[in-house]
Amino acid sequence: MKSNASVLASLLILLLALLIGGVMTGAYELSATELWWALTGRAEELEHFLVWQVRMPRLVLAVVVGAALALTGAATQGLFRNPLAEPTLIGVTSGAMLFAVLMLVLSARLLAGFPLWMQQISVSLAAFAGALLTTGIVYRLAAGRGRLNVTTMLLAGIAIAALAGAFTGLMVYQSTESQLRDITFWSLGSLGGANWTQVAIAAPLIVVGGYFLRRDALALNAFLLGEREAAQLGFRVDRVKRRVIVWVALLVGVCISLTGLIGFVGLVIPHLLRLWRGTDYRQLLLFSGLLGASFLLGADTLARTIVAPAELPIGILTALVGAPFFLWLLLRERRKTVFL
C-alpha cells in the first residue's frame, strides 16, 4: 500500500495538471507558450484577459467548490454513519433550491427599486439564506434537551426537503417560460458566472471551514463506533455534531449560492477514497477535498469544451460521469469483499 505522503503528492500533481490543462483548453485554445506569456504578463491583451479574468477565476472557483462539496460529503457521511448521507440530508440543498427559485420567479417584481448589484446577486443571497434557514429548522427539530438525535435529524431533513420541494414545484408551476429556463439551468449547476469576487467570498470561508472540519477528524473516526462510544472516549458528542453541521451548512450554502446545485461530488468522491485508502478521517477529509477539486475541475473543463462555444450545465456531467462510475465501484467491491 502506498504511503499517505505519496497519495497526497499524486493528488496534488493531478490537481495541478488539470489546472494547467483547464487554462489552456476551451473555445479558444491556448498553446503552452501563450500560457507562459499570459502568466508572466507578456501576452496580448486578449490572452491576458482570457487567462486572468475568464479562465482563472472559473478554475479556482471549481477547485474551491469541488473541494468543499467532497469534504462536506465525507463529513456528513461520517456524522450520520451512513454511506448515503449527503449534505442534502440536513436540508441545505432543498432550502437553497426553494429560495433560489423563489427569487428567480419573484425578483423582477420584488427587487425593482433595489440597486443593480443586489439584483444580480439576489439569487445567490437567497439560496444561501434558504440553505441556512432550512438547516436551522431541521436542526431545531432534531435537537431537544441539549441532545441532538441524528435519526430524527435525518427524518426531519427528508420531511423538510419534501415540503420545500412542494413549494418549489408550486413556484415552477407559476413561472414563465424564461424563468423556467433559468430555474432548470440553476438546478443543474454552472460555474459560468465565475469571477474573482465570488472566489474571494468562497475561498477564505472554505479554507477556514475545511480547517475546522479537519480538526474534528478524530471525533469523526470515533463516531464510526457510535455516539455512545465516542462520548465514553471523552468526546463532547453534541458539540462535535453542532460544529460539523454548522460548517457543512455554511460551506454547502456558499457553494450552492454561487454555482447552483451540483450533485454527486459529495457522494462519489469520499466513497472512492474510502475504497482506495480506507475510512480514517485524518486523511479522508484532506484527500476528499483534493480529489473533489480535481473532479469538479475536470468536469467543468469538459462541460465548457465538448459543446463549445455553448456549455453544458456541469451537474449533468458530474451525474453522467459520477453515477455509472459509482455503480461500477459498488459492483466491483461487492464481488471482492464486504462493502459496508
Binding site: N221, F223, L224, L225, G226, G278, T279, D280, V338, L340
Partner: peptide
C-alpha cells in the same frame, strides 16, 4: 459495536 464504515483492526 457496528462500525458506520469499515476501519482496520489497528485503526479501531
Amino acid at each position: 459495536v457496528h462500525l458506520g464504515f469499515p476501519l482496520s483492526v489497528a485503526e479501531v
